[in-house]
């Protein structure tokens, strides 16, 4: 009897030990900090959007979420870093529409299909912005001048990325021609446009303060409706250009992540994106919260990719 009891006890102990050893590996995702790869340098608008999101996500998921800025080569370095990371849910990829554009521009072989979507979190409408040293005050003046001087009005842009595509769409819709000058990142474009070294650029509502101070001019916003923050700025649609252009950003994981991990992330992401404090933080970034869950985000990405291909083909920038 005693022997049997001892055996049972021992078996129980061993069983207990093994379960206690294996259990964390299976069920307890996440049990250590999660890395969020932001493929742009810190301080850009992408970084400014994902950093507050990381804070919310951390609260929702119960482990630190650490932003890792892996910048360089129009975001393709960070993309590769995230793609090559183990698909265990401890590496998240924070992307935006540039993925499709750089893929079709032939800058990288990585496409959105190398990742699995988790959620879409935000949308930032683009605003066509002019230097204070330019003569025109509205779209009409700009259009006339552009027709008079084709290829003379300078536009600062990150070549091949959203800030390039947006003015290029305007060019095409209005039948005018700009001269593009490479200024990577919104911060450098702001220095250049305030000094009058470029005439136009793509920016967003974060620059409202400078417009109020008379340092910049907003020409038009590329959203469906006027923005309540800046009701005097007309939409491009009102001006007769059928362009709605916003930069959307979301979270993905490398392909092959286990389903429970994805489910957990999807849950946490939904909670985080719908926090009022996140909406508040986004307002400062001239951005609205635009939450889509994994399934809808996947559909959205497919459409986005097809659209990007059309745009890049139209603009003659396509390489693939």
């Amino acid at each position: 009897m005693r022997r049997i009891l001892a055996a049972v006890l021992a078996a129980g102990l061993i069983a207990g030990m093994t379960t206690s050893m294996t259990a964390p590996a299976q069920a307890q995702y996440p049990d250590r900090p999660i890395k969020m790869v932001v493929p742009w340098p810190a301080g850009g608008d992408t970084d400014n959007i994902f950093r507050p999101f990381a804070v919310e996500l951390q609260k929702a998921i119960g482990q630190p979420v650490v932003v890792a800025n892996v910048g360089g080569a129009s975001g393709t370095v960070g993309e590769r870093e995230a793609k090559n990371a183990p698909a265990d849910g401890y590496t998240l990829f924070a992307g935006h529409d540039y993925m499709h554009l750089v893929f079709y521009a032939g800058m990288t072989d990585i496409s959105y299909k190398d990742f699995e979507p988790i959620c879409l979190i935000s949308a930032t409408p683009s605003v066509l912005t002019a230097s204070p040293k330019t003569p025109w005050t509205d779209w009409k003046g700009l259009l006339e001048d552009a027709k008079k001087r084709p290829g003379q009005i300078t536009v600062g842009a990150t070549l091949g990325s959203t800030s390039h595509i947006f003015p290029a769409l305007i060019e095409k819709a209005a039948g005018i021609k700009f001269k593009f000058v490479s200024y990577e990142g919104l911060a450098t474009r702001m220095n250049a446009i305030l000094g009058g070294h470029i005439d136009l650029t793509d920016s967003n509502l974060t620059q409202k303060g400078k417009v109020d101070a008379g340092l910049l001019k907003f020409i038009a916003i590329a959203s469906e409706k006027r923005n309540s923050e800046m009701p005097t700025v007309p939409t491009l649609k009102e001006l007769g250009l059928d362009i709605v252009f916003q930069v959307v950003r979301g979270i993905m994981v490398p392909k092959g992540a286990p389903a429970p991990v994805k489910a957990k992330l999807n849950d946490a992401c939904g909670k985080a994106a719908n926090q009022p404090s996140f909406a508040e933080a986004m307002k400062l970034q001239g951005t609205t919260v635009a939450y889509l869950d994994a399934a809808r985000y996947a559909k959205f990405l497919d459409k986005m990719d097809a659209d990007s291909k059309v745009v890049m083909t139209d603009l003659g920038l396509i390489k693939k």
Binding site: P41, G43, D47, R51, G185, A187, T188, N191
Partner: peptide, 11 residues
């Protein structure tokens, strides 16, 4: 500074 997202420069 750049790592913390601060662009130094005239502004």
């Amino acid at each position: 500074m750049t790592i913390h997202g601060i662009q130094s420069g005239p502004l």
